[in-house]
Nucleic acid binder design. Structure first.
Lengths: 310, 310
DNA sequence: GCAATTTGTATATTTTTTGTATAATTAAAC
DNA sequence: GTTTAATTATACAAAAAATATACAAATTGC
C-alpha cells in the first residue's frame, strides 16, 4: 500500500520547489527557510546543487502550521509544544438585552452546545427550519449565535471544543442541505471557495445556500483553496463568477499576491466576501476583485447586479 | 489544411516534425530542444540527416510536462517524475476483478469529479450505497478512489481543486449520514476528534460511521482539535473513550507533547487511529494511549475488546 | 521599565535554473 | 536558386534560490 494518506498527496518523485510551497501555503519563502533553519520544522530533499524540494505532505504540514499559528500558538512552540500557559478566566455570563423568539432559540442552541447534545441540537435546528426560511434563520439565529460563540471564546468562557462541536454539526447540516438543493439546477453558476488558509467553511456554506435560494448554481470547493487552482477549473466548467470567502485573520499577503494573478487569468468577476473585506479593501479592489462585505443578502444583490451588467 | 500527406502530414507511423510538436503543445521549439539536451525529456527519432521526428505519444508527453509545470513543479525535476512513472507503468491492475463493479463505479465517480458534476456524483454515491453497506463501499470504492486521485495529481492530469471538490462532497455526505444515524442512540459513547493540525476529516467520519454501525454513540468534534480542550468536555459529558485521528507529520510532535497530559487527565482509554500510528507508535504507547492502526474494522474490534475489559 | 528573546522580513551577494537569442551550417521546399 | 526550416553550439538575461547578516516589531523575563 502506498504511504500516502493525504488525499491530494503526491507519490515519490513529485517534488515541488520552494516557490510552489510558498504559493500553496501563503508563507513567504524567506520565512520557510527561516523556519527550517531555526526550528527544523521541515527538512526538504535537496538537489545536487542545494535547491530545496518539497513533497505535498510538506505542503500539508505547512498549512497545518499556519493553522496552528492562527490558533494562537507561536512558531517556536509548535516544534516543542509547551503550552500550559492557557490562562483560563472564570466564566462571565453575558446579560441578555432584548427579547425575541430568536433569543430563545439561541439560548436553547447554546445550552445544547455547552452540553454537547447532538440530539437537542438537531431538534432545535429542524424545528426552526420548519418554521422559518433559511435566510431568515441564517440572519437572525445562526450569525448571532456564531458571534456569541466567538465572543464567549474570546472571553475565555467558552471552549474551542464547543465551537468545534457546533461547527461540525452546522457544517454537516448545511452541507447536506446544499447537496440536496443542488440537484437539477439551472441558472448561472458560481464557483465558491475559501481563500487560502481559511479553514472555517460555515460562512461559505451559508453563502452557497443563499445563492441556491436565488437560483444560482454553485460549484463548492471548500476550505483553504489555492487560488492558482481556480483558472484550470473555470476552463473546464462554465462558471459565471468566482466567489471567495475569508475571515479577518487570513494573511493579507495571500490576497495581495494571489488575487491579482487570478483576476487576470479569468475573464469573469471575482467576488470576495467575509470579514476580510473590511481589512483588505484596498488590496481587493486594486487586484480587480469586487468586495462583498459580510452581509449575505447584500452580497447576493451585488452579484446579481454585476452579472446582469455583463 | 495539410494537403501533403506524403511528407508532412501524418506519414510514417504518424511522425511529426518539431514545429508541429511546438504548435500542438505551445512550447517554443528552441525550448523543446533545450529540454531534450538538458534533461533528456524525450529522445525523438531522427531522419538520416538528423531532423527530429516525434510521435503522438511525444505530444502527449510534452502536454503532460506542461501540465506539471502548471502545477508548480520545476522542469528540472519533471524528468525524474517521468522516469519513475515509466519504470512503474501499471504494475497492479486489480487482479482477477476485471468485471468488478467497483472499477466501473470508480470510473463514473472519477468522470464526475473531473467534470465537477455534483449531480452525477450524488447519483453514483446513492446508487452504490443503496446496494452495498457503507464499510464495503469505503474499502472497495472510496479508499481506492482517493488513491487514484493522488496518482492523477502526480501525473499532472489532476488538480488540487478536484481533490477539494470531492473531499467537500464526501465530507458533507458522510456528515449528513452521521447526524442521521446519530439520533436516539444508546450504547457506550466515544468522543472522536482529529489531532491538532489535522485538517482532513474524512477518515474520522468514516470511523464515526463504522462506530455507529457497531452501536456506539459518537460525539464528533471535527478537525484540528487541541487535546487540552478534551478534559473539560469529558467532565461535562459522559463518554467511555476518546478516539483521535491523525495522519500528518505535525501531529507527531503534538502527540509527544500533548498526548501524555491528556491521558493523565482523563480516566478512560484514549485511542489513536490513522497513519500517525505507524510513525509514532512508541510515543503513543509511552503516553498510555492505544494505537489502532489504519484499518477501521480492526480498530473497532480493538475498542470493543478494550471497553469490554474495563 | 528595560534588556533579552522571538520572529518575520529585508538586504546583499553568489549560484543555479531556464527560456530564449544568436551564429554558422545544413536540409527541405518550391 | 532562393527561401524556409532545422540542426548544433554558445551565449545571455531574467528569474529563482541559496547563504548570511541585519533589523524592526512584538513578546517575555526580571
Amino acid at each position: 500500500m502506498k504511504t500516502n494518506n493525504s488525499n491530494h498527496g503526491l507519490p515519490d518523485g513529485g517534488l515541488v520547489p520552494i516557490r510552489t510551497l510558498s504559493n500553496l501555503t501563503g508563507v513567504n519563502s524567506v520565512t520557510l527557510r527561516a523556519w527550517e533553519r531555526r526550528y527544523e520544522l521541515i527538512k526538504p530533499i535537496r538537489t545536487p546543487k542545494g535547491h530545496r524540494l518539497y513533497t505535498m505532505a510538506d505542503v500539508d504540514l505547512i498549512n497545518q502550521v499556519v493553522t496552528l499559528l492562527g490558533n494562537g500558538m507561536s512558531i517556536g512552540q509548535i516544534r516543542q509544544v509547551l503550552e500550559t500557559d492557557k490562562a483560563r478566566p472564570e466564566p462571565v455570563r453575558e446579560p441578555a438585552t432584548a427579547f425575541s423568539p430568536w433569543l430563545n432559540y439561541q439560548d436553547r442552541l447554546l445550552r445544547a452546545i455547552v452540553a454537547f447534545d447532538d440530539g437537542e441540537l438537531s431538534e432545535v435546528y429542524h424545528e426552526v427550519l420548519s418554521l422559518y426560511p433559511v435566510d431568515i434563520v441564517t440572519h437572525r439565529l445562526i450569525m448571532p449565535l456564531l458571534r456569541e460563540l466567538g465572543e464567549r471564546w474570546a472571553q475565555g468562557s467558552g471552549s474551542i471544543a464547543e465551537e468545534h462541536f457546533f461547527s461540525v454539526f452546522l457544517r454537516n447540516k448545511l452541507g447536506a442541505r446544499f447537496h440536496h438543493l443542488s440537484r437539477n439546477r439551472q441558472g448561472p453558476k458560481l464557483l465558491a471557495a475559501c481563500l487560502p488558509g481559511e479553514q472555517h467553511e460555515v460562512g461559505l456554506l451559508l453563502f452557497a445556500l443563499a445563492a441556491l435560494d436565488r437560483d444560482y448554481q454553485v460549484l463548492l470547493l471548500g476550505p483553504n483553496t489555492p487560488l492558482l487552482e481556480l483558472p484550470p477549473v473555470v476552463e473546464r466548467v462554465a462558471v459565471h463568477a468566482i466567489v471567495l470567502s475569508g475571515s479577518a485573520d487570513i494573511a493579507a499577503t495571500v490576497v495581495e499576491q494571489e488575487l491579482l494573478p487570478l483576476c487576470r487569468a479569468v475573464a469573469m468577476p471575482v467576488f470576495i466576501g467575509g470579514r476580510i473585506t473590511d481589512r483588505c479593501l484596498d488590496a481587493i479592489t486594486a487586484a480587480g476583485a469586487v468586495p462583498l462585505g459580510d452581509d449575505l443578502n447584500l452580497a447576493l444583490r451585488g452579484i446579481d447586479a454585476m452579472l446582469a451588467r455583463c
